[in-house]
């Protein structure tokens, strides 16, 4: 546990739509929902299906494998958690189960040169301290 490093912006609770997603990150599980009525993959998480309005949804755990849909490399951010880490990659990753998550691609030397659209990636976690939520990020597979 590192308390010296400033924390990233944290999800704020109570927020009942996304709280189950974030609770699961404490066990390093990346969860997403499917609709019991129409089968749609629902993401970002919410209590209803955004395709048909059904309130009957099921939580599933992703294998955490997918590909970079697109990304941008942020050269400057004023947030304390990001301003001193150098250029970092914001990305949309398409998980193999059919949902798209906003995330970071980490574990590369130079994000501009070493990341490409379509690149295969796998899930890893940025822990936020003992007992806290963890933030899902991706690294080259």
């Amino acid at each position: 546990m590192t308390t010296e490093k400033p924390l990233r912006p944290q999800p704020q609770f109570p927020e009942p739509d996304t709280e189950p997603f974030w609770e699961a990150t404490k066990d390093h599980e990346l969860k997403y929902q499917t609709c019991d009525k129409c089968g749609e993959v629902i993401f970002y998480p919410r209590a209803h299906c955004n395709a048909c309005g059904s309130l009957d949804t099921t939580w599933n755990v992703s294998k955490g494998e997918g590909e970079v849909y697109t990304f941008s490399v942020i050269m400057q951010s004023r947030h304390p958690a990001f301003k001193d880490i150098g250029p970092y990659a914001l990305a949309y990753v398409d998980l193999d189960e059919g949902f798209r998550i906003m995330t970071n691609v980490v574990g590369v030397d130079n994000p501009i040169d070493d990341i490409e659209c379509g690149m295969r990636v796998k899930l890893t976690w940025e822990d936020q301290g003992e007992g806290n939520i963890a933030i899902p990020v991706f690294e080259p597979a």
């Binding site: 990233r8 912006p9 109570p14 490399v73 942020i74 914001l90 906003m102 970071n104």
Partner: peptide, 25 residues
């Protein structure tokens, strides 16, 4: 980090998105 509690903030803020990077993607 102290925006209103809503699904948008909770699913975008933790990864350090800036407005320009949203268009950059």
């Amino acid at each position: 980090s102290s925006g209103p509690n809503n699904p948008h903030n909770n699913m975008e803020a933790p990864w350090g998105m800036t407005l320009i990077s949203n268009y950059g993607m």
